[in-house]
Design a protein around this nucleic acid. Structure first.
Lengths: 250, 250
DNA sequence: ATCTTGTCTTGATCCTGATCAATGATGCGC
DNA sequence: GCGCATCATTGATCAGGATCAAGACAAGAT
C-alpha cells in the first residue's frame, strides 16, 4: 500500500458512525445534501488522560469519535467508579434533547472528536428525519450492549469477565479495520489494568492475576503488557462463558 | 372518588408511555391524527409467570405495557440468569428495525400489552417523525437507566443493591401514581426474592438476609412479605450509596 | 548511571456473599 | 381440617475476589 492510496483512503473516509454520514476530513469530496453541516461542525482534540466532560456539566455539543478511545463512567462519593461505556472510533457522544451530561467522559488515548453545537444539530435533526432514525438505531444498539454488559457485571466470574472484555475489544478492533475477527489476530489493548478493573467491576490486582492466568493457560498471548494475541478465538469466547452466536459484530 | 369519575379516568387515560400517544381503552375519545393506528393495534394479556417472547424469536410486534409487570432477562447456558430490565406500565417493548428479539421477556404479574404489528408500526414511524423522536427519547432514558444499573451491579455491596432496587421501585411506583415519592410511602414489591436476586446479581438467600437486615435497622418496614413501607426516603437512598440528586423520577 | 514515576505482578490474609441444608410461612385444593 | 406446593428465612461452611503489602519493570528526567 503506497502513500497515495493510504492518504486517499484517509481523506475520504466517513466520519465514523456519526449519525450524519458526512466526510470526516476531505473538503474536496463530492457534495452531498448534508454538507450544510460543515458550517456547524468542528474538531476537538484531547490528550490521553484529559477529561472531555463531567457528569452534570451543561451539554453544549454532541460529537462522534474520529480517532482514539474514551470512556464513559460514573463515580460514587466514596470514589468507587464504574465504567459504563467504551467509546471507540465511530461512537456517538451526547443526548439531543437533554441539557446536562449524565456521565463522565475521559480520553484514554489521544482523542479526536467531531463535534456539532447542540442546538443547530437538533434543528438539523428536525429537518432531516433520517438523522433521527440513524441515531435511534445507534442508541438501540448501545442499549443492547449495555444490557449484555449487565450480564457480565452481575453474573460472570473474574476470569469470564476478562475474557469477555478481550473478546469485545477484539471484535470491535476487527470491525474497525473492516475484517472479520479470526484466529491469530492481535490488537493493542488500549486500557490500563485499572481501567479494565473499572470496566469489569473488579480490582486491578484481580485483573492482573486473571490476565496472567489466561496467558498461562494459553488462551491469550501477550507481547509486552498491552498487545494481545488471540490464538483461538473460539477458546476465548468459551472462557467468556458465551456461545458463538449472540454477540453482534459491533 | 365515585365509580363514574373513576371509569372516566380509566377510559380516557393515555396508553402509558407508548411512543404513539393514543388512547388506551376508550374508543369514543376525540379523534386525533393517529387514530389510524387503531387499525393495527391490539391487546394481549399474559398470566403471571408466562413468557411473552424468548430471546432469538422473530419479532412480530412491538408493544407497550398497559398494566402489570414484566422482566427482560438473559440466561447463560449453565443457567445463570441476569435481569436487564424491569418493564412497568408505560414501558415500551420492541426494536423497530430489528428482526429478532435480543432478550427474554417474562410476565411477572398478570400483564396487558398494547401491541402493534411491527411492519405497519415502522411504516407509521416513517410517516410520523414525531413517533421516532419520542421513541429516541425513551430509548435514551432507558440507556441511562441501564448504565446507572451497571454501577449497582459492578460496585455496590449486597445491602446497597437491595436499597437501590427498593429506591427505584419506590420512585417508579410514585411516578406511576403521579405523586412525588415521600416519607412513609408504601408499595407492593412485585418481585419474588429470586427475581430480586436475578436483578441484582445476587442469590436469593443473600437477598432475604439483606432485606431482613434493612428491616432490623429500621430503614424499611414490611407488611407481610411483599408490601414495603419507607419511613425515611433519604435514609433509604443513603443506604443505596446514592446522593439525593441524580436519579431522575422515571 | 541513578532517581522518579507510573504501571504491573505476586504474595498473604481477610471478608463478603455463595453454597448447601434445614426449617418456617402462606395459600390453595380437596 | 389436612396435604401439598411455593416462597421465604435462617444457619453453617466455603471460596472467590478484595485488601494490604512488597517488589519488578520500563521509560523518562536529572
Amino acid at each position: 500500500m503506497n502513500d497515495i492510496s493510504f492518504n486517499t483512503r484517509l481523506n475520504t473516509r466517513e466520519c465514523g458512525g456519526c449519525p450524519i454520514r458526512h466526510r470526516a476530513v476531505c473538503a474536496r469530496c463530492e457534495p452531498n445534501e448534508l454538507e450544510q453541516l460543515d458550517a456547524i461542525k468542528y474538531y476537538r482534540t484531547f490528550e490521553a488522560g484529559q477529561p472531555v466532560i463531567w457528569s452534570g456539566d451543561p451539554m453544549e455539543f454532541v460529537s462522534s469519535v474520529v480517532s482514539g478511545i474514551a470512556t464513559l463512567s460514573q463515580t460514587m462519593e466514596d470514589g468507587r467508579t464504574q465504567m459504563v461505556g467504551l467509546l471507540l472510533p465511530s461512537d456517538f457522544i451526547g443526548r439531543p434533547g437533554r441539557d446536562t451530561t449524565p456521565f463522565d467522559v475521559v480520553a484514554v488515548t489521544d482523542l479526536t472528536l467531531c463535534c456539532f453545537r447542540k442546538k443547530p444539530f437538533e434543528d438539523m435533526m428536525e429537518r432531516t428525519p433520517a438523522i433521527g432514525t440513524r441515531l435511534l438505531q445507534m442508541t438501540l444498539d448501545e442499549l443492547d450492549s449495555a444490557r449484555e454488559w449487565m450480564l457480565v457485571l452481575g453474573r460472570k466470574t473474574a476470569r469470564e469477565k476478562i475474557a469477555s472484555l478481550l473478546a469485545i475489544v477484539a471484535r470491535r478492533d476487527a470491525a474497525l479495520h473492516k475484517v472479520p475477527p479470526r484466529d491469530g489476530m492481535s490488537f493493542e489493548l488500549p486500557l490500563t489494568r485499572e481501567a479494565m478493573a473499572d470496566y469489569l467491576g473488579l480490582t486491578l490486582e484481580t485483573v492482573s492475576r486473571q490476565v496472567s492466568a489466561l496467558k498461562k493457560s494459553g488462551v491469550i498471548k501477550l507481547e509486552g503488557k498491552r498487545r494481545v494475541i488471540i490464538p483461538d478465538l473460539e477458546a476465548l469466547i468459551t472462557e467468556a462463558g458465551d456461545d458463538m452466536d449472540g454477540a453482534p459484530i459491533t
